[in-house]
Design a protein around this nucleic acid. Structure first.
Length: 560
RNA sequence: GGGCCAGUAGCCUAGCCUGGAUAGGGCGACAGCCUUCUAAGCUGUAGGUCGUGGGUUCAAAUCCCACCUGGCCCGCCA
């Protein structure tokens, strides 16, 4: 709003219709609020930028929006009217509250598919990235006014299941089943893979199990159903823990038969061909290699099923777009999949949102190599640490309250540590870092929020929205106000670039500025007029912090 | 061999799309700050060939080209 006014004023003074470039923010606050670099006018006006700045400065007079204009070398720096600026920002946030930054509801409907774990495998920290990213994107989309269908696509069939069940039947049929059944299945899978690697003759046995499963062998299906539930109950518990609620859970097993028939249709239509007994689509003329859609032993692949799932999604939910939040290692796979769908005549909007994987210091996560970080183990270690930290700080809290706080801290620390990193960077997960709740962490932001709550609580009275906002003239207050004003733009940016990391970074900035302010300036000890203005400012900060955290899937805490 | 992604202080990271004033943070290190609204906090110090070399530009971490390094992907895994 203020930027537009400033641009109009410059255009008028320079005799132009409009200023096309965005204004900049000067490197220092005392240099002004908006900067216009005069280089851009140097060519058309045929003068050096320093002279242009000088000339424009003389032409521009202060008005309701502009307090002062100053030329600084080739820059023209604007000081906006503090009172009007402060008041407009704070009042807007205080009146909009949890709706602050929210976009207008549109008719657009998008399905976001994320998490997609495989049953019969262990759930490790690497699986958290798609979960957090997908959920946060869903929240950002919804907040922006888009209707979101949260979908999960569980890998409940495939070679890995065959290996796991084969290993169980052949070597562990008489095992006493341990309490953590999900983990037990993961171990069976890893053991099975090793056995097959060491003895290739077992491969045939696994393939037989796989075929029997796909041909509805009664006994095997019963075992499969039972063990699948073991994994599913583990997954559902984790989703609940992270407050993730899927609108639709697809299982690969649901689309397998349909996928196989699509493979046959593609074969008949001549889009696909048989090569070495397998069905594939040759995409070499599109520089996409060949795409295998059915194995030579007749069993299905990921691709077989995805071909069927794509159209099912659009039919069932009348969505406008389908976004797949999947590991970047499958980039090529999705290019191939989308191309084949296009060749089939599928014209809907599909997007693969790739993210880089999570590795450990020792290398990429691989249970076979013993490079593992199971989610539940990491979580429990973090809870233990945050429990101790909480207890240290709050001798008067009861067990329940301490534990509740410890869990909140843990989940926010874990979530934030992954979301703050740009999704196309490989994350090296370090348990020591995960156990650190200081610095650029989720708890840091929650702490800023809790401090504001504490101030408001100590003040005791309700704050009305009336105050003299020109009293907010400290540099730290100005920085906070500038950040607050940016919030709606950050939401839009995060959506446009599919980057919750932008929101995470913004919240760190805002928290940091608040903490600096908190240390430098007292609020409750100030005289009434200043106190009022400051209370309203920090109330606005509190609202924005809470809204931003919610978009990341993190709860704002009132105390900690 | 082809393709994608990344390279910014000891370590991690922002900025790159949309070029602009002194490259922001965090961890770790060192020195400080709790009779003052929660020290999961704050202040200060040290630490930088923005991978390398060209090009474009008045101006390049940012745009273009080449190269180097690392990761990942390229038909019976998912």
């Amino acid at each position: 709003m203020f930027e537009q006014e400033v641009k109009k004023i410059i255009a008028k003074a320079a005799g132009l219709k409009e200023i096309e470039i965005a204004l900049e923010t000067p490197p220092h606050l005392d240099m002004g609020d908006y900067a216009f670099p005069c280089f851009v006018l140097a060519k058309t006006m045929k003068k050096n930028p320093v002279a242009i700045a000088e000339e424009l400065q003389k032409k521009i007079k202060p008005d309701a929006y502009i307090e002062k204009v100053k030329n600084n070398g080739p820059y023209l720096n604007f000081f906006i009217n503090k009172k009007a600026f402060n008041e407009s920002i704070i009042k807007k946030i205080l009146s909009e509250k949890e709706n602050c930054g929210k976009g207008k509801a549109s008719k657009e409907k998008v399905m976001i598919e994320y998490s997609q774990p495989n049953t019969h495998k262990e759930f490790h920290v690497g699986h958290l990235r798609t979960l957090f990213l997908g959920e946060s994107l869903s929240r950002i989309y919804e907040f922006s006014g888009v209707k979101v269908i949260r979908a999960n696509y569980i890998g409940d069939v495939g070679t890995h299941i065959a290996i796991c069940l084969w290993c169980y039947l052949k070597f562990h049929a008489k095992d006493k089943i341990p309490e953590n059944k999900g983990k037990y299945l993961g171990k069976l899978y890893v053991e099975g893979v090793k056995k097959v690697e060491d003895n290739p003759a077992y491969k045939k046995e696994v393939s037989e199990i796989h075929q029997k499963l796909e041909n509805d062998d009664k006994q095997l299906i019963a075992l499969w159903k039972k063990t699948k539930e073991w994994s599913m109950s583990e997954f559902l518990a984790i989703y609940k823990e992270f407050d993730v609620h899927f609108d639709k859970i697809y299982f690969e097993s649901e689309v397998e038969k349909e996928g196989k028939s699509i493979a046959e249709i593609l074969l008949k239509k001549g889009i696909a061909k048989i090569d070495q007994g397998a069905i594939l689509v040759d995409l070499q003329k599109y520089d996409l290699g060949v795409f295998l859609i059915k194995k030579s032993d007749g069993t299905s692949l990921y691709a077989t099923k995805d071909l069927a799932l794509a159209s099912r999604k659009f039919k069932e939910f009348a969505i406008d777009e389908s976004i797949y939040v999947v590991d970047s290692r499958q980039k090529m796979y999705f290019q191939q999949l989308f191309k084949v769908l296009a060749l089939m005549g599928f014209t809907k909007k599909l997007l693969h949102l790739p993210y880089e994987f999570v590795a450990l210091k020792e290398g990429p996560i691989s249970s076979r190599k013993g490079i593992m970080a199971l989610y539940e183990e990491v979580r429990d270690a973090m809870i233990k640490k945050s429990y101790e930290e909480t207890k240290k700080r709050h001798a008067d809290w009861n067990e329940k309250k301490i534990m509740q706080n410890a869990k909140q801290i843990t989940l926010s620390a874990l979530r934030f540590s992954i979301l703050k990193i740009d999704h196309n960077k490989v994350i090296t997960f370090d348990i020591d870092e995960a156990l650190d709740f200081e610095g650029e962490t989720g708890p840091y932001i929650q702490y800023a929020h809790a401090r504001i709550c504490s101030i408001l609580k100590n003040y005791g009275k309700k704050t009305d929205a009336k105050a003299d906002f020109s009293l907010l003239h400290e540099p730290e207050e100005k920085e906070l106000l500038l950040l607050l004003q940016q919030f709606p733009f950050m939401v839009a940016d995060a959506k446009e670039h599919y980057k919750p990391a932008l929101m995470a970074r913004y919240l760190l900035d805002l928290s940091q500025k608040f903490n600096e302010y908190y240390h430098k300036h007292q609020i409750l000890k100030e005289k009434e007029s200043v106190k009022k203005a400051r209370l309203l400012l920090v109330s606005a900060v509190k609202i924005v912090l809470a809204n931003g955290l919610l978009l990341l899937g993190i709860d704002a805490l009132d105390e900690m």
